[in-house]
Amino acid sequence: MQIKVVIGTIAFMLVMVILGVAALFEPARLGETTDAFVGRQVEKGAVLFHENCAECHGAEGKAIDCVDFAGEEKSCVGLPLNHAPLLCGEPSQRLQQVGWQSSKANYVSQTVAAGRPGTLMPTWSQDFGGPMEDYQIDQVTAFVLNWGEDPELCGEEAIVEAVDWPDSWEDLPQGDAANGPGLYQINGCAGCHGDPDNPGSAAVGPHLGNIGNVAATRVPGISAEQYIYESILNPNAFIVPECPSGPCAEPSVMRADYGFVLSEQDMADLIAYYLTLTSAP
């Protein structure tokens, strides 16, 4: 009788200890499983992409080198998907262009699911009469978005290169300072740099009220115009020493994708505008 109680007690305590240890490792295990699930989504999406989409969007998603099912070359009718303006930044340039309010993943998955009526882009989801289950739409979406994980496509340096910006601000069109305040608002500059007339309003980035004077002094040998131009295109080109909450962080927290969002005219207008800001310190 006694021995049974002892064995039972030991077994019970062992169960408790094992469960406790297992609970410690559970979050890590769940994390790995989640990663594995996402990784496999991308893999399955790759299969679906090569079977269904490469024909129009190209095997590398660049809308070049399309072949049909017989292996014959054909022209690519789809848009490039492995494409920085579509995939880099949230929202990406493409989403802003079409005024998409939701996420990039939704943009891709909904385009794939419903197709584009009036274009050659077919409908894929069974909900809209296409051949794919919803989970397959998710898989192929994960695959398309995974191109955006590539630092060569969306890394900070790549972004500046992707759009063919001239080296010098002088090659930009003539700027109009009057458009500046509008662009400053639309592009979210104010969210970080605050109101140019109110020095205390800058939250994240340096206050730009006196940038017209400061810009010329930041980097020796670089004109004020060129400095502003480079600061917007590639925030990491030069890190400002002082931000509102202490020294500016490196790499810069300023969005690195304005090279996609702004047109050359926008850029010229912003530079012209900033040169007029010489009031507040």
Partner: peptide
């Protein structure tokens, strides 16, 4: 005793000797 031993067996078995790998979604 048997209940405790059986729980021990089930817990150990499910933790180390049983794995449920990720599989694809079912599709008719």
């Amino acid at each position: 005793m048997w209940t405790a031993l059986a729980s021990l067996l089930l817990v150990v078995g499910s933790l180390w000797f049983y794995s449920a790998p990720l599989e694809s979604q079912a599709n008719p």
